[in-house]
């Protein structure tokens, strides 16, 4: 991976910039499918830039692929939580989805421990962790040289901050897998396979027991992957298996959305 990265640097990344500009140009010409293709090719070439994801989200929005748009806005916000344009476009896109389902919440331990880090970008946490780490050792060195008042407190504070920001950076680098439904409709099943029955569940906010149907733009947490199927959970308590090609993953490794946004599975058999 490291060698490949160096090779890319040596070959020059200007070709990426050219592809990006061509995609932007296609977008300006309202050739949104071509623009999306261009941005997708950049992502396939290991580009991970919040602006690329944002622009790709816009292209999908224009193509009325809401799930793909939401996934890419989420990707942009994961890299740059302060990107207000992406946040506003995401909100606007979510309002167009059928169920306007909330995003699955992070694990309780992460929510309680890192409640403060959701608005800080990954880069910022890394820089802060490095700064606190360096400061911690610098203060330890000062302590070797001379005893100063409040030095112990400052060392402990720098150490704690370094741990906190380091932990935050690690959690951000290893996020819980999330995905967005990118087809019109998909039904969750009890197991990985078309032969499995459709899940029946009672939403957490009340209501009758119903088939676990997911629609374009619904955000899910990925719990397991097996044989082209993914076990997902929604914020309203539905849990089951969905075909992998019906989803766009928010977290790496990134996948391409399905070509056809039509229904992959339906619930008619479950309803009957």
């Amino acid at each position: 991976m490291n060698a490949a990265w160096m090779l890319l640097l040596l070959l020059g990344v200007d070709s990426f910039a050219r592809t990006f500009e061509q995609a932007n140009d296609a977008y300006a010409r309202q050739a949104y499918a071509e623009a999306a293709q261009g941005y997708e090719s950049l992502i396939a070439e290991s580009i991970e830039d919040s602006v690329v994801f944002f622009n790709l989200g816009n292209a999908y929005y224009k193509l009325d692929r809401l799930g793909c748009a939401i996934a890419n806005y989420e990707r942009a916000l994961r890299l740059d939580p302060g990107m207000t344009d992406a946040r506003e476009n995401l909100t606007r896109t979510l309002l167009k989805t059928r169920r306007k389902l909330n995003a699955p919440a992070p694990a309780p331990w992460a929510r309680n421990l890192f409640f403060w880090h959701y608005d800080i970008s990954h880069d910022a946490t890394r820089v802060l962790a490095a700064a606190c780490w360096t400061l911690f050792w610098a203060l330890l060195a000062v302590r070797l040289w001379r005893k100063l008042p409040y030095l112990h407190g400052a060392i402990i504070a720098a150490g704690v901050l370094a741990l906190a920001f380091g932990g935050s950076a690690w959690v951000k680098a290893h996020p819980a897998q999330r995905a967005v439904i990118a087809v019109e409709h998909v039904a969750l099943r009890y197991g990985p396979g078309e032969q499995e029955e459709v899940v029946l569940y009672t939403p957490e906010d009340g209501g009758r027991k119903a088939p676990a149907d997911l629609f374009d733009g619904d955000r899910v947490r990925v719990e397991a992957r097996r044989d082209g199927w993914v076990r997902v959970a929604t914020s309203d308590g539905a849990r089951g298996w969905a075909p992998e090609n019906a989803l766009v993953f928010v977290t790496p490794p990134y996948n391409r959305p399905p070509e056809d946004a039509g229904a992959i599975a339906n619930t008619e058999e479950a309803s009957t």
Partner: peptide, 23 residues
């Protein structure tokens, strides 16, 4: 019409992974 438009990139596009030497 209803969303914020596409953006240009300031500087180079970022590549996933990157060097582990610096960290």
């Amino acid at each position: 019409e209803d969303i914020w438009s596409v953006k240009p990139v300031a500087g180079r596009l970022r590549i996933r992974g990157g060097s582990v030497a610096l960290p």
